[in-house]
Amino acid sequence: MTFVMSAPLVEFRNVSFAYEEEIVLRDVSLTVARGQVVAIMGGSGSGKTTLLKLIGGQIRPDSGEVLVDGENVGNLGERDLYRLRRKLGMLFQFGALFTDLSVFDNVAFPLRERTNLPESMIRDLVLMKLQAVGLRGAARLMPAELSGGMARRVALARAIALDPRVMLYDEPFTGLDPISLATTGKLIRELNDALGTASIVVTHDVAESLALVDYIYFLADGVVVAQGSPDEVRASEHPFVRQFINAEPDGPVPFHKPAAPYAADLGLEAANG
């Protein structure tokens, strides 16, 4: 991929964020350009979803700036935020389809809510988006009748309904069988290249993302510990990256949660005796 590095579509400048006392992100900086697919990798609870929420403006950074298409998300009022969100599409971890609407109505939802298009045109657009994810035949089904992989693809069709400029994927591979997983990965890449978006994929699936993405950030305890292209990552000697890629149980990410010495906990050392 040789894209001219124009102004990045998404940029984090020294962003920190905490829920009450718990610091989730610490001085995070990253950039995503148009046409790029970028992966954010890290263990559970490392702050990946939080990072996506910052882009969508659902939460605001405590310090630093989050820029989307040149606008500082943290400073926008409600109205401007809603305007900005039209440029974003997000795929939630388990699809987050509206359970009381059919597949067709789910995909039509953003079109009906955000545009004044006539129903006939909405119909065409919905079928087009469903065709793109290969599920035009499922238009009449209800979400409860879909498998996990299909639900994820319908959600993807819904996310791209308004032709977003930035796509956000929250763990799109979790809980999918190998075939659905490969299908989803292929779709993410194809959609990104066809629509000319910038994509951010939050994941801990190493193999799939190394094949898929242009650049990778490793997140641990809210800090970017390593970054690079897939080739650089494969060649990396960074202990955290090695542990992550080779799926080793112990390393910089310890197997044991910090605790008092085991023996003391069991009362073997008669400490207070």
């Binding site: 305007r83 987050a96 389809l97 509206f98 809510e113 955000r114």
Partner: peptide
């Protein structure tokens, strides 16, 4: 099931 969050991200209150 994050339906409300999804709605918010689609700029629907």
């Amino acid at each position: 099931t994050e339906q409300l969050a999804a709605m918010e991200m689609m700029a629907v209150n």
